Computed example of a mutant assay.
Amino acid sequence: MSATQLRVSRSVEAPARRIFDLLSDPSRHTEIDGSGMLRGVAGGTGPMTGVGDEFFMDMHQDALGDYRMANKIVAFERDRLIGWQPRMDRAPESAPEMGGHGPRGQTYTYELSENGDGTTTVTQVYDWSAVTAPEIVARMPRVSEAQLLDTLDRLAAAVGG
């Protein structure tokens, strides 16, 4: 861990292809969400196919209420790497000043490495090193290491490993 990044890993009993298929399909993200913030995909977004694709998630936090995040794919290597950068798409009523802001500099990335024995090491990296707004930096990280580990446990269960 660094001052601006959390990194967690776990071995999952599944091929990288199956794990990547789940991660690239936003409609399945609520199955693996260890943060408890995701409420569902907004709109009819299908699986992501490359850098530049975007999907929208309905979210909720007790301190903020309901809001929507737009997530732009910033890393994409089939069966090996997928990552996205979220930005506020629709601000919660409790914080209208947050609406319309562009990317804040956070990224969520999953690195997949097959181990040759039917398992894949999945590493989730939550990075906020590019966040520059002082009011946002003061609230980082937005998720904990325990929540990231819970996400990996849920991912393992969702792919059957």
Rank of each mutant, 00 (worst) to 15 (best):
I73M: 10
E111L: 08
H60F: 15
H101S: 13
E77W: 02
D117H: 03
E13Y: 05
A91Q: 03
R18F: 02
G50Q: 05
K72N: 12
F20N: 00
T123K: 09
T109E: 03
S9R: 13
G50E: 09
G65A: 10
N71C: 13
T107C: 05
M88H: 05
L112D: 02
G44Q: 09
S113M: 08
K72R: 15
E13M: 07
G52P: 01
R10D: 07
D117W: 07
V74C: 12
V125I: 15
I73W: 03
M57Y: 09
P26A: 14
R87T: 13
F76K: 03
Q85C: 14
A70R: 06
T120D: 00
A16E: 04
T109C: 02
R90S: 12
V12E: 09
G36P: 05
V131R: 09
S94K: 15
A42G: 04
D62N: 11
G83N: 00
A16H: 05
A70I: 06
Y126D: 00
P134A: 07
M59G: 02
A91L: 06
H101D: 08
R28Q: 15
A63C: 03
Y126R: 01
L38N: 10
F56T: 14
G52L: 08
S129F: 04
M69P: 03
T121K: 04
M98H: 06
D117I: 07
L22H: 08
D25G: 06
L38K: 01
R104N: 14
W84L: 05
E114M: 00
S27E: 13
G43N: 04
W128E: 01
F55S: 13
A42I: 13
E54I: 09
T123G: 03
L81C: 11
I32N: 02
S113I: 05
L81W: 11
G118Y: 04
G116D: 13
R39N: 10
S129W: 10
A16S: 14
P15L: 05
T119W: 00
V131L: 04
G52T: 12
R104I: 15
P26E: 13
D79L: 02
A63K: 07
G105Q: 03
H60P: 07
T30R: 14
S94P: 02
I82K: 06
S27V: 14
T107N: 10
S113H: 02
E13G: 07
E97A: 12
M69V: 12
H29P: 06
A75G: 04
N71R: 03
E114G: 06
T109N: 04
S24R: 15
G43E: 00
G100C: 12
V8T: 12
P96S: 08
A63R: 05
A16V: 00
E31C: 12
G65S: 11
A42M: 10
P96M: 10
V12H: 10
D117K: 07
V137F: 09
V122G: 08
G99M: 09
R28C: 12
L23M: 05
T123P: 07
R87F: 13
N115I: 01
G43Y: 08
F55D: 14
